[in-house]
Design a protein around this nucleic acid. Structure first.
Lengths: 154, 154
DNA sequence: GTCCCTTAGTTTAATAATGCAACTACATTG
DNA sequence: CAATGTAGTTGCATTATTAAACTAAGGGAC
């Protein structure tokens, strides 16, 4: 592991990156969203070395992002599935997808489109709103260290 | 570089991760949002090795996420600043922050709070909306390979 | 100008992570 | 029972990261 000094970082971004900030974890989660469930599915689709994939899947399971359960379709093997915590990475994946769409594609090659499953129409951009509903843009926010009630006794 | 097979991946998530998916780049961008601008600021705050920081800053500049310009405050050194492309990583950082907040903190240790700079009140959760305004949740989306106009001549 | 301090890196050598290929284990198919 | 498919593990070479020492350039004190 790297960045040991951040293991108990107070910053949630650093903590998140310690869990899913490596080269493969988010791609595995992306494929899990895409319906992949078996070791071989991930391996073939990602082209990742099998030992690395095994280590990543183990890590994701140990962090409660994936579960490893017996397959329901009768196959004798086990399947990896997203937990609620793993499904909640949806917004991280969408943010990465939309940033990549906006900044990493030329007009020639076009990214696949993210569609609403009901309407089959493109979804909007991720939005962050203030308490009063105003749309917030980059730089419209600040951080405040939250007060720790545990410090002064009760 | 790793994952060379994904260098021209059609998936915008994979492309994004190729650019900012390493262990340090997003933390550097986070600190840039926090006002850090000089090499030493990043180095002290992150505890990163100086050669790695130099390599990452070079990479971020070469990808158009940071710029390296003469400092405005008269100091003889240069400063790193976010470009529009870099500022647009805001949503990725917020997504990681909110996921970490929700899943990586116990009741005892609390993450710093993201506030609206105007109201000084906590911001809402990132939202993804369908074309008709419906709020979309994890799994409510699908992908469609966009059609390539270049293929059939005109 | 010389000495020393700060800033911003580079270089070097040790350590850790990754990738590749071969191998194991187990269950099914023929 | 041999062949095949799935899910890994093991060993080794390659690559990335780290820490520490080193370089270079500017500024201030004298």
């Amino acid at each position: 592991m790297r960045r040991t000094s951040f293991e108990h970082a107070e910053c949630p971004i650093a903590r998140s990156l310690d869990v899913i900030g490596d080269w493969w974890s988010l791609l595995i989660v992306r494929d899990a969203f895409g319906g992949k469930r078996k070791f071989g599915d991930f391996q073939k689709n990602l082209g990742i070395a099998k030992n690395i994939l095994a280590a990543r899947l183990r890590s994701l399971v140990s962090h409660g992002i994936l579960t490893l359960e017996a397959a329901e379709d009768g196959s004798p093997y086990q399947e990896y599935g997203l937990t609620a915590k793993g499904r909640d990475l949806f917004y991280v994946l969408v943010a990465l997808r939309q940033w990549g769409d906006r900044h990493l594609f030329e007009t020639e090659d076009v990214a696949p489109e993210l569609l609403d499953r009901q309407l089959h129409r493109p979804v909007g951009q991720l939005e962050l709103h203030a308490a009063d509903g105003r749309l917030l843009r980059p730089g419209d926010t600040m951080l405040r260290r939250r007060r720790c009630e545990a410090l002064n006794g009760a």
